[in-house]
Amino acid sequence: MGELADSILAGDRRAAGRLISQAERRDPQAVEDLGILYRHGGHARTIGITGPPGAGKSTVADALITRFRKLGQTVAIIAVDPSSPISSGAVLGDRVRMMRHCDDEGVLVRSMATRGALGGLSAATGDAITVFDAMGFDIIIIETVGVGQSETDIVGHSEAVILLQTALGGDGVQAIKAGVLEIADLIVVNKKSTSGSDKMARFLRESLHDRPMRADGWDVPVLLTEASEDIGIDKLTDTLVQRFYHNSTQDRVSVTRRRQVAAHLTALADVEVRSLTKRLVAGDATPEAWQAVLERRSDPWTLSAQLFEKLR
């Protein structure tokens, strides 16, 4: 116990990979190591990238890696892809776009499957962040699945959420309808050479303008990039740095931290509750109370209240 944590703190990437796998399968052994690592963290800056399929999330991540490496920063990437709901298998293909960094020891990419989680991330995302943070990575980039519009888990895990859009296929309108704009700290219209990009950016700026000022006083910028040609990435990086600086004022640090811890806790609790419920439904553990509901001597509300009483 605690051996993996020691190795990880000494920079052992193999151990880091293993611990994240343990966390992914909710191996109870992982808890102690993660706990040790958590106490060593708190220095990394976290960036979330979300947006619809084809918006270029991995390409933007790749361009950001290049830029941060030039600034002397080390970068870890957590790239999440969906698990098949039928087979539970997955094809995790985000690394392909980040290949030019594969020989660079200052870059670490970990691909993760959602394994049933619904918020656009893996349930172990917070655990992976804990590991990379403790290893001393300066920047941690988290890339969401990018299939649906309910990918809001990213908000809790990153202090700068980049929402990617393109002028293709009316993404912007969809985003506004779905309320995804709310989660963004930065909005980026990628593939800016596509016709309609400027119009899209204007439209997004106007929609933001109509909204009340954010509680943290941050003015959400709308930027244009062509990540595959490295265009606009300088500006994006500068804005990210501004965002970090903005968060660094005392009271905001605690807001951001609190948000992150809450997200991590929610993710852990979610898994626990789901797992418990699933086991009940699967009939592995059939306490009398569950039998009672089945036989209509009790009801789901009562059972739920009994099960989670202690949490109240």
């Binding site: 539970s88 997955a90 293909g93 392909v96 290949m99």
Partner: peptide
């Protein structure tokens, strides 16, 4: 993937 494996796909030219 369809057989339940998590494939980390690196593609060509590694």
């Amino acid at each position: 993937r369809d057989a339940g494996i998590e494939v980390i796909y690196l593609g060509e030219h590694n």
